[in-house]
Design a protein around this nucleic acid. Structure first.
Lengths: 160, 160
DNA sequence: TTTAATGCAAACGATTTGCAGCGAA
DNA sequence: TTCGCTGCAAATCGTTTGCATTAAA
């Protein structure tokens, strides 16, 4: 069953209707590659259909969430907008980032995935995805902390 | 060095000033237990000092972040406000939640912590904290999916 | 005395909602 | 024909900012 068919099924199961606008937005979501923001989506959709209203797109978001076509990415970029992700995107959410300079390293550790699977199973969950952030201080920022006269920041970060 | 002393040091290192208002907000942050929201904080502070302005509290947030007294919790509740956490709160951010009903299970797995430490070390990071979310479908929601005539949702969740 | 900090109100940006007309089922 | 959907504009909500005033250093 394609995502589109699935969504149509979802709509009719909820007594909701399929419309040209929804189809267009949906196409755009499925065509896109991974993460997106509502304003991204609006821009892309409006490029194809000038008249598309912002609220139509906003109103479609909770439906796509419910239907499982997309999900919320838990990190918002800055103060800004919610980021969403197509639900068939591969799930690589393991990163290690620096609290100070923001540098991000992505990592992949099978042993951790195995443990995650074990934990989910232990609690009877079927695992869909995972978000795993490690945050610390990268080596160059550690050096800066030592060199800095102040030292105020250094002392304030706990080591796990 | 107490958090308060640390903050004073931070302020003077940046040519910033300590004021009664900042002291009051800081006390409230330190007195509180764990998570808080800016409006929480404002309410608590205004209970003690009627005249405290919202912007004073908002303006203090980035300073406390920089000084390492608090940090942002990456999950915002709903559409709402940013959640912050006092930086000396114990870091238990391992949870397993259900995509459908939202049920949350907290877990603690030493083997995972060990692996995290190893990964951080491998990249030269000093680990401060971590956020680890597993998301899936809990056992009772799995049963509902099977029973439901529609099945629209069930098909849309991938199993890792 | 210098200049950062304050409270207030207005400004902002993302999201939501009320409404009258439109159109899928 | 019904009632959900649309675009629009106005409304919210959290957060930021401009400004004249106050006060820390």
């Amino acid at each position: 069953m394609t995502p589109l068919e699935r969504f149509k099924k979802f709509l009719s199961s909820q007594n909701l209707r399929m419309t040209d606008e929804r189809l267009l937005v949906l196409d755009e979501v499925l065509a896109g590659s991974g993460h997106f923001t509502v304003s991204d989506l609006i821009a892309r959709v409006q490029a194809k259909s000038e008249s598309m209203g912002r609220s139509t797109v906003y109103r479609l978001i909770p439906l796509m969430l419910q239907a499982g076509l997309i999900f919320e990415v838990s990190i918002r970029e800055g103060r800004g907008e919610q980021v969403y992700e197509k639900s068939d995107t591969p799930r690589h959410h393991d990163h290690l980032s620096c609290e100070i300079c923001g540098a991000v390293i992505e990592f992949e550790e099978d042993a951790i995935h195995d443990l995650e699977a074990k934990i989910a199973k232990r609690h009877g969950y079927r695992l869909c995805r995972h978000v795993h952030h490690l945050r610390g201080i990268c080596s160059s920022c550690q050096e800066n902390l030592i060199t800095e006269a102040v030292g105020a920041r250094g002392g304030s970060f706990k080591t796990l």
